[in-house]
C-alpha cells in the first residue's frame, strides 16, 4: 500500500509520469478554456443591470477560486514536506507560490476593472476585496522568504512553516475583515449580484472554473518539472536525459 507513496516521493517518477499526463491535461485545459470563453463572452445572455460588463465574471470568479485553493495546495504540500521530509512536496510548494500569487493578482485586477462600470470606482474597501489583498500579501511573504535563504532545504522548511501559519490564520483574517466591513459598511455600494444566476450564465462559468482548475494543474506540473530538473541537475538520470536529447532540439530551445 505504501508503494505509491514512496514512488510519489521520487522526483524522477513524478517527472516521467507527469510527462505522460501533461499533453492530455493541456489539451483538456485548452478545450475547456476556449469553450468557456467563447460561450461566456459570445453567447451567454446579457445581464439585466450590468449589460456586457458582467462578462468579466468568467475570468474573475475562477481566478478568485483558485487563488484561495492554491494557498491550500501550497500549505498542505508544505506540511507534507515538513512531516514526511518529501522532496517532491517541497518542490510543489515552491512552484505553487508564484502561480497562486499571479492568480490572486488577476482576481484583484479583474475585480477592479469590473468595479469601474458597476460601482463607478476601481477600488473600494469591500470585505472580499480586502481579504483578497491580504491573501496576496500572504503569498508575497512566502515567496520572499523562499528566496531569501541560501540553503534550499532551510528555505523550504521556513516557507512551509510560514504557509501553515498563514493557513491557520486565513479563516481568522477573513472573519475579522468581514466584521470590520459590517462595522464600517458604506451604505451606497452594494454587490448587485442576484441570489442565483440564470443557468444560461452559470453553465459557461462552470466550464471556465473547470478549465481554470485544469490550467492550474498544468501550470503547477510545468513549474514543478522545471524545479525538479534544476534541483536534480547533478543526478545521473537528469544528465542522461539531457545527453539523449538530440542537439537540434537543444538549439531550438535556446533560440
Amino acid at each position: 500500500m505504501w508503494q505509491w507513496f514512496h514512488r510519489l516521493g521520487s522526483p524522477r517518477w513524478f517527472y516521467n509520469t507527469s510527462g505522460k499526463w501533461l499533453p492530455w491535461l493541456s489539451v483538456l485545459a485548452a478545450i475547456l478554456l476556449s469553450l468557456g470563453v467563447v460561450w461566456g463572452l459570445g453567447f451567454a445572455p446579457q445581464d439585466a443591470k450590468q449589460g456586457n460588463s458582467f462578462r468579466i465574471i468568467y475570468i474573475h470568479v475562477p481566478a478568485s477560486f483558485l487563488a484561495l485553493a492554491g494557498y491550500y495546495v501550497m500549505a498542505i504540500s508544505g506540511a507534507v514536506g515538513l512531516i514526511w521530509k518529501m522532496k517532491l512536496a517541497d518542490m510543489v510548494m515552491k512552484s505553487a507560490a508564484p502561480i497562486g500569487a499571479v492568480l490572486t493578482f488577476v482576481a484583484l485586477v479583474t475585480g477592479a476593472i469590473w468595479g469601474k462600470p458597476t460601482w463607478g470606482t476601481y477600488w473600494v474597501w469591500d470585505a472580499r476585496i480586502t481579504s483578497m489583498l491580504v491573501l496576496f500579501f500572504l503569498y508575497l511573504g512566502v515567496i520572499a522568504l523562499q528566496y531569501s535563504y541560501t540553503s534550499q532545504d532551510a528555505a523550504s522548511k521556513a516557507s512551509a512553516v510560514l504557509s501553515l501559519v498563514g493557513m491557520v490564520n486565513i479563516p481568522i483574517i477573513y472573519k475579522s475583515v468581514d466584521w470590520w466591513y459590517t462595522l464600517h459598511q458604506p451604505a451606497t455600494i452594494r454587490l448587485t449580484e442576484a441570489p442565483s444566476m440564470h443557468p444560461d450564465m452559470f453553465h459557461p462559468l462552470l466550464v471556465m472554473i473547470l478549465g481554470f482548475y485544469c490550467f492550474y494543474a498544468v501550470a503547477l506540473i510545468l513549474n514543478t518539472r522545471v524545479e525538479i530538473l534544476y534541483r536534480e541537475r547533478r543526478t545521473r538520470w537528469v544528465q542522461d536525459m539531457v545527453l539523449e536529447t538530440p542537439v537540434s532540439e537543444i538549439r531550438e530551445g535556446q533560440n
Binding site: V134, L140, G166, N169, S176, W180
Partner: peptide, 20 residues
C-alpha cells in the same frame, strides 16, 4: 524588512479588533 513583510498580514485581525 522581510520580517515586516511576512508578519504584517497576520497582524491585521488584531488591528481590526483593537482599533474597533
Amino acid at each position: 524588512l522581510l520580517l515586516s513583510l511576512i508578519v504584517m498580514p497576520l497582524y491585521m485581525p488584531v488591528l481590526i479588533f483593537g482599533a474597533s
